[in-house]
Deep mutational scan, measured.
Amino acid sequence: MSIQHFRVALIPFFAAFCLPVFAHPETLVKVKDAEDQLGARVGYIELDLNSGKILESFRPEERFPMMSTFKVLLCGAVLSRVDAGQEQLGRRIHYSQNDLVEYSPVTEKHLTDGMTVRELCSAAITMSDNTAANLLLTTIGGPKELTAFLHNMGDHVTRLDRWEPELNEAIPNDERDTTMPAAMATTLRKLLTGELLTLASRQQLIDWMEADKVAGPLLRSALPAGWFIADKSGAGERGSRGIIAALGPDGKPSRIVVIYTTGSQATMDERNRQIAEIGASLIKHW
């Protein structure tokens, strides 16, 4: 067993022997301040990774656009098919120029040779490549099948209805392509620590998230040296922004954090800054 596999296998073990965790309302004060600064709703939840206990939450059962955070769930569904012998990570998928959609920095470079399922998941999570996500959605049967996968996990809230990039439209009061912070946090925890996926697939999923290259201005910008984070960000229309993450000190994750916002007129930089400040408060009061 590799060191990384050992780390993920012992996530519940280490967490069980940690000192009790206590909620700190100071972080919620910052979440509410972010709402004021952005002029928009902000949803927040913080779960203990081992027990699933909610440590703090704000608007945990209000719907927010998922945006690209759905790509972690998508690759979880792909990995479940791999575990069941219905898919192979090494299978190569070929596609054409007509398949390319807006923001496809990886797939646009491989029109000639195609990409493997493993490479597509890596591109979808680490670079948020939209064509990679659409190609992977095709392998599982489309958005409705991802929703069905989530329902089978016990998540009857999260739903995907459309493809990239239309799913980022974020129309107010439109339930399409949305989740709730509580539902997303619980589902992410199941994917990373539950028995739904094999140990190898859980490790692969967290490795992809740990290698995320496009979430630097968010929670990662607030992390002290030595902290662990595996995350996936999302951005959408109407001032929408979000991030889902597993993080913790001492090089291992111990909490799940989900943050979503929508309806702001603020710039992307300002949305990023507010999420980073929430992260800084979380870490300060850990």
Rank of each mutant, 00 (worst) to 15 (best):
R271Y: 03
R63P: 10
S264R: 08
T261I: 13
T147N: 06
E26C: 13
H151T: 09
Q86K: 07
V157Y: 15
T147D: 07
L137W: 04
K32C: 09
Q88T: 15
R92D: 14
D99A: 08
L100G: 04
I244Y: 01
T112W: 15
I243C: 10
K213S: 05
L197E: 04
D250F: 08
R271L: 11
S221W: 14
L196R: 12
R59T: 03
E175G: 11
I259D: 00
H24M: 11
A235M: 10
V214D: 03
P143G: 11
N173H: 11
R63I: 13
E35S: 05
A185D: 00
L223H: 03
L218T: 03
G142C: 04
S57C: 06
H24R: 09
A133V: 03
E169I: 09
R273F: 10
I206H: 08
A235H: 03
P224T: 12
F149V: 13
E56V: 09
D161C: 06
G154L: 05
E102I: 11
L150P: 02
T198L: 10
L192C: 06
K53H: 12
D231C: 05
A276E: 06
E145F: 12
H285S: 11
S221G: 13
A133K: 00
R91D: 09
P65I: 03
L47S: 13
T193D: 10
L137I: 13
S240P: 01
R202N: 06
L160F: 06
G154S: 08
R41K: 05
K53A: 12
I93S: 03
W286I: 05
D207R: 10
I45F: 15
K53R: 14
D177C: 03
V257T: 12
A222V: 06
E237Q: 14
L160R: 01
S104M: 03
E35F: 00
I243S: 02
D212A: 05
D177Q: 00
K213T: 05
T107C: 13
N50C: 10
E169R: 09
K213R: 06
H110R: 12
W227A: 01
T112L: 13
L38Q: 11
E169Q: 10
R159T: 14
I54L: 15
H151N: 12
H285I: 04
G43D: 02
K53Q: 13
D269G: 14
K71Y: 00
Q88V: 14
T158K: 00
H285F: 07
F64S: 00
N173W: 10
E169T: 09
I259A: 05
V29Q: 12
T261V: 14
R59Y: 04
N134L: 01
F58D: 02
D269Y: 13
R241Y: 03
P65R: 01
S51H: 07
N50R: 11
S201Y: 05
N130S: 12
L188A: 06
V82Y: 08
E87I: 11
G234K: 00
L282S: 14
P181H: 00
S128R: 02
I243A: 05
D161K: 03
M180I: 11
G263I: 04
R220F: 03
R63V: 08
E35V: 05
V82N: 09
T198D: 08
F58A: 10
L120H: 03
A245R: 01
V157K: 10
L205G: 00
D48W: 02
L150N: 15
K30N: 06
I259Y: 05
A280E: 12
M115R: 05
S281Y: 15
A123R: 01
A246F: 09
W286V: 02
A185K: 01
L205H: 00
T261N: 04
L74K: 00
K144T: 12
I256M: 13
M184Q: 04
T193P: 01
V72P: 09
I206A: 10
H24E: 08
R59L: 04
P249E: 06
I259T: 05
C121R: 02
L47R: 04
D174H: 04
A235K: 03
T139C: 15
A280V: 13
P105K: 12
L150M: 15
T262N: 08
L49C: 06
L47F: 11
G226Q: 14
T179D: 00
G85P: 01
A170T: 07
L28K: 14
T147G: 07
R59E: 03
A132L: 01
R189A: 08
S201G: 09
L196I: 11
V258T: 07
L49V: 14
G194Y: 12
Q204Y: 08
L197D: 00
A185T: 03
T116P: 15
I93Y: 09
I283G: 05
L55I: 12
V82A: 11
A132R: 00
M127D: 11
K284N: 06
M180P: 03
D231G: 04
I206T: 11
K53W: 13
R176K: 06
M67K: 00
G142T: 09
A225W: 12
L247F: 05
H94K: 07
M67H: 12
T139S: 15
S122G: 13
G142W: 02
Y44G: 01
K284H: 13
R81Q: 06
Q204N: 15
W227T: 01
L47N: 03
E175I: 14
V78Y: 03
R255N: 02
N98C: 06
S68H: 02
E26R: 12
K30T: 10
D207L: 10
E164S: 01
K284T: 09
C121P: 02
D83N: 06
M209I: 03
F58H: 06
S254P: 09
L197M: 14
A40R: 03
S68R: 00
I278D: 00
L282C: 08
R63C: 06
A148F: 07
N50D: 10
D231N: 07
L38T: 08
L38D: 15
Q265V: 11
M184N: 00
D36E: 15
R63N: 15
G114Y: 07
G39H: 11
S264M: 13
I171F: 15
T139L: 14
L192G: 01
D33I: 10
V117K: 03
N98D: 07
D113Q: 09
W286L: 04
G52M: 06
A148N: 15
L89G: 09
Q97C: 12
R220I: 03
G251T: 12
K232H: 01
C121Y: 02
S68V: 01
D250L: 06
R159N: 13
D207H: 12
Q97V: 12
Y95G: 03
L120G: 03
R220M: 03
V31Q: 00
S240H: 06
L111D: 14
R273Q: 14
A185Q: 00
P172H: 11
E62W: 07
L223E: 02
S264H: 10
F58E: 05
P165W: 04
A34S: 12
T158E: 01
R189D: 06
D48Y: 03
R202K: 08
L49Q: 13
Q204M: 07
A148R: 09
G90D: 14
V101W: 05
V72C: 07
G141T: 09
G76H: 02
D161W: 02
C75Q: 02
A215M: 02
T116W: 03
L137S: 14
L160G: 04
I256C: 13
M115Y: 04
D48Q: 05
M268K: 14
G39W: 09
W286N: 02
H94N: 06
I140V: 09
E46W: 04
S201Q: 15
A40Q: 10
E145P: 10
M180L: 09
P253Q: 06
K53D: 12
T112H: 14
D36K: 15
S96N: 11
A215W: 00
E87D: 14
I278G: 01
I125K: 01
N168L: 02
A211Y: 13
F64W: 04
G279Y: 03
V101N: 09
K252I: 13
L136N: 01
P165G: 09
V258R: 00
L160E: 02
R189M: 13
V157D: 06
R162W: 02
I45K: 01
E87R: 03
A230C: 09
I54C: 12
D212H: 04
M127K: 13
P217G: 10
N130T: 03
H110I: 05
